[in-house]
Design a protein around this nucleic acid. Structure first.
Lengths: 284, 284
DNA sequence: TTTTTTTGTAACGTTTACGCACCAGCGGGG
DNA sequence: CCCCGCTGGTGCGTAAACGTTACAAAAAAA
């Protein structure tokens, strides 16, 4: 019988392309990868990989194996989730993925309080924005602003995130209305037409929400921003009095496999309650 | 990232129950299994197995892992089949599962001829009767007498196997009709009522078809037997002149994953043709 | 062009995982 | 009853797998 880890080697080498990158992914050195690959190929009746353009490419046969290995990986990830949820006490590792902005403006104290209330839980906060974290086991709970979260995840929507248009007080003082420019996440910001400055151009494109808010707070231009970020700022003021726009929902999510875990439940409740308490601020 | 071979250890230990049996299954010693298990349990937040009644029993959590490992095994077996079918030349290992009786009476020469015609193919003939061989990769091609072969297998039915009722000439000479007894595969042989001796009892039960035929040929009683086995025998004669009964089909089968392999195709064709050539003898 | 980085390969020394032999404890069968 | 077979556990020597280091070739950068 063959070693099931062979499948992982095939999958990882296919994804990484080189021995060194594969070694990094598998936490071994590239020489080890080379040896394992040589042993694997010796067991196979047909080459699995060929070197082409300074990279390992899977042969047609290798691609079949990769496809099967991908299915295997899904099961391995499922096993990892089962493993995570199996620790039915309030102890052990637990990870929360939350956007930087939410962490900074809404949950800083509450996360600290949770960690203090559960000293046996090793809480890790990761600041990534990718929603795929959950499937790959990189996080147990994620908090995201999203219109329609993937349906295979479970959780609850706390409220809508309200956004308004802001500018720094000094920016408004030192510029004329015709000279003002927008800071936006993309070039084609269609929502600008519904603002007090519908014809002003986008002067600065910043994809990262955190950096964009910093630019706004530094008086670099007009910008749409989440109320919970901008309202506490003493020098930022809304451009008009229209009520905040509920742009997307704020979700606390986990994977179905993890839902039964007491740790996960406790964290979801704590975070959900903390956000619900600040509902008026989030909605604007 | 965890070693995917852990899943195999969990699955095998669950099936075997003891360290030694697991070691035999994995082709390692029981000490190695103990070490791997200790390392695995150390990585798990919750026990996977508990010792109970001198055997390793999976915990509830362990059973979840076993279920996932079973799904993994299916994929691993699929990969094995892909591997087998990938060798697209007429070379390498090839295994044929065929009942002893068919091997001896019908295919002995033809299998030898096939092996001689394809010197680069390492042909292995296994004499098991289990049909599950194909799924577990224990054989590439199976030849079986079966009424309805599993539908997930592919292949063709050569013809029906004809059976008649026979006895050794000397047995008939030295016994009176009332003293004759049947040799059967089971106690409740309902087909006896349609024979020239419908009221004679079953005197000997032999499950194994090969041994049963030997008993018949040794003059131990009356018995139903396949025509292709009994007709060539000089001293066996039918009990009546009724035509042979087509009892079940004779199938040459393989797994869909292997069908594309030239080796498998060649072997299936050779065996199918060889059996078709002897169709009149098989049907009786 | 030269230089730098990144690639895979080869040799060497160490660690780790392995098989082997042996042990005691428990059960079933004679 | 005793004995035999099977269980898992322990110590030891070996062999396989590993990381480190060094090296040559090819692509990328200067």
């Amino acid at each position: 019988m063959r070693d099931w880890d062979d499948h992982r080697l095939i999958l990882t080498l296919h994804r990484c392309g080189t021995l060194r990158a594969t070694g990094d992914a598998l936490d071994v050195t590239h020489t080890t990868v080379a040896r394992r690959l040589a042993a694997l190929e010796a067991r196979e009746p047909t080459p699995v990989f060929i070197r082409q353009d300074r990279a390992y490419r899977a042969t047609d046969y290798g691609l079949e194996r990769v496809a099967l290995a991908e299915r295997m990986e899904e099961i391995d990830l499922a096993a990892m989730r089962v493993q995570r949820s199996s620790n039915n006490g309030l102890a052990g590792p637990l990870s929360l993925s939350v956007p930087q902005a939410v962490f900074q403006f809404l949950l800083l104290k509450d996360i600290g309080a949770f960690a203090g209330a559960h000293p046996d839980i090793d809480l890790t906060v990761v600041g990534t924005d990718r929603l795929a974290d959950l499937d790959r086991g990189e996080a147990d709970v994620v908090i995201r602003g999203h219109a329609n979260p993937p349906e295979h995840l479970v959780g609850r929507e706390i409220c809508k995130v309200g956004v308004r248009n802001y500018a720094h007080r000094e920016y408004l003082d030192r510029t004329t209305p015709d000279a003002r420019k927008w800071i936006s996440a993309s070039d084609n910001a269609v929502w600008i037409k519904d603002t007090p400055y519908p014809h002003q151009p986008v002067g600065l494109v910043i994809h990262d929400i955190q950096s964009r808010f910093l630019a706004l707070a530094a008086g670099q231009g007009l910008s749409r921003a989440a109320c919970f970020m901008a309202d506490p700022h003493p020098d930022l003021e809304p451009l008009d009095d229209t009520p905040p726009t509920p742009l997307y929902g704020l979700w606390v999510l986990t994977h179905p496999d993890l839902r039964a875990s007491p740790k996960v439940k406790a964290l979801m409740k704590a975070m959900g309650d903390a956000l619900a308490r600040q509902r008026s601020m989030i909605e604007g």
